[in-house]
Structure formats: C-alpha cells, structure tokens
C-alpha cells in the first residue's frame, strides 16, 4: 500500500536528505522509524503525504504515485492518511470537539455523520469528557490525544506519527503509546518516527533504521547510540 522505490532527495543539488530508499509498508502493521535527529525521518514521512516530493525515484501510496499525482488530488490522498506531530498542530481558537469535527468538515463529510464520527473518535482516545475544552486548557498528552482523534476520524488506513511523544510527559507518553497500539490492533497501520528507543516494543512492530538518509540495520543504531553517541 505504501512503497518507496529508489527514493532520493537532494537539497540544493548536492546534499542528500534521503539516499536511495527502498521500503514497503503493509496494511495493519506497526512500524517504528528510528534514527537520530537529522537522519531524514521527517523528510521520509512528509514524502508519504506528499508535502515533499522525491528528487529521484517514486513513492506509491495506494493508487497515487508521486510521479503522476496532481495538486488537486493531494487532498484525496491526505484524506486517506492520518498525521500527528510533535507540536500537535491543533487550532487554538476552537475547542476539542471542533478541532476533530473540522477534519471532517474540510474533507466534505456529510453533515449528519459528523457529530457521530467525531464523538466516536473522541471516545476512542478517551478525551470525550474534555470535548468543550480549548487546547490551552489541556496537557501535552491530552492535546496529542485530540490530534490522534482528529487523524482517526477520517478513518485512514495508516497513521503517521512524527515524534508523537516529544512534548508529552512520561505518563501521557504511556497513554499515547497504548492508544497507538490499540488503534493498530483495530486494523490501522502505524508508522511512528522516534528517537526515544524506550518506546519500542519489539514484539509488536517492525523497526526501520535511518542514518544520514540511508536505511541501516536498526541494531547498529541502538549500538551506536548506547555506546557513547549522544542520543539527541
């Protein structure tokens, strides 16, 4: 369903953000994308929802190809993908419910379905009780839950999470991870980029290592980072 075919990304013609990436992401799986800051994790994720396009190679996401997709087809692609960020990216001027309902409104969901779907998504991430609160009234963990609800309400086939616990306290982190695992067992694929290796449950997902834009054996990254290399 998502495939990277020999994907490279140059920056200013000489520097390689990504170097000949070949990857395949299957439905329903849990993927960890690990590597230090600057390894190219975000670039790789942004290529999936086509915010960044490869300089070389091709990315296939369901029926869309990075080579042939038109600007007006990108919203259709993004309807199929949920994305959450380290900084949550919630709309500060509206409450939790509106933040989630917003995702349905802008993608043209039928009016009758919006309320039901929004409430379902909110209860899935256990934040229904705060549906009238505004983002500034919530903790980092709670804000991320809202972001997850907003991503899930579109019923995407994959949820992309870019350092989802970067701004969340340890307790919130555990809750967020539980929610992600829960979503995954319900059939949504998860692709999570992180440099916090303690979050990884090896029994659950597949780990992809990225260093300086190249795919490497994740064990090498663990070893390097725990033997003197700084973690951040």
């Amino acid at each position: 369903m998502i495939e990277f075919r020999n994907v490279s990304k140059y920056y200013k013609n000489d520097w390689l953000a990504l170097n000949r990436i070949n990857l395949k992401f299957d439905k329903g799986q849990f993927y960890y994308l690990i590597g230090r800051s600057g390894a190219g994790k975000s670039t790789l994720l942004k290529m999936i929802y086509m915010e960044i396009f490869p300089s070389e190679g091709e990315i296939i996401v369901e029926n869309f190809s990075s080579k042939t997709i038109k600007q007006n087809e990108i919203p259709l692609l993004r309807k199929r993908i949920g994305v959450i960020f380290q900084d949550f990216k919630l709309l500060k001027d509206r409450n939790v419910y509106d933040n989630v309902a917003f995702a349905l409104q802008v993608t043209g969901e039928k009016y009758q379905n919006i309320r039901k779907k929004t409430l379902e998504a909110l209860s899935l991430v256990k934040i229904s009780h705060k549906r009238n609160s505004f983002p500034y009234q919530l903790s980092g963990g709670e804000q991320q839950k809202v972001a997850i609800a907003r991503a899930l309400v579109k019923e995407p086939f994959i949820l992309i999470a870019d350092e989802p616990t970067g701004n969340v306290d340890p307790e919130g982190t555990r809750e967020i991870m539980d929610i992600l695992f829960d979503i995954n067992t319900k059939g949504t694929a998860i692709l999570m980029a992180t440099h916090d290796y303690s979050l990884i449950k090896k029994s659950i997902g597949k780990i992809i290592g990225l260093r300086e834009g190249k795919i490497v054996n994740p064990e090498d990254i663990f070893k390097l980072d725990f033997s003197g290399g700084s973690k951040e």
Binding site: Y49, I74, P75, L76, R78, K79, L91, A103, V106, K154
Partner: peptide, 17 residues
C-alpha cells in the same frame, strides 16, 4: 498561516481553504 497549514495537511481541498 498556521490554520491554512493544518487544513492543508488534514486534506482540505484548495477551494475549501
């Protein structure tokens, strides 16, 4: 800008934005 960015990522069509 922030709001437009979020709408764009969520998958709002350009007409909507």
């Amino acid at each position: 800008k922030e709001q437009i960015d979020i709408m764009d990522i969520i998958g709002a069509t350009e007409t909507y934005i």
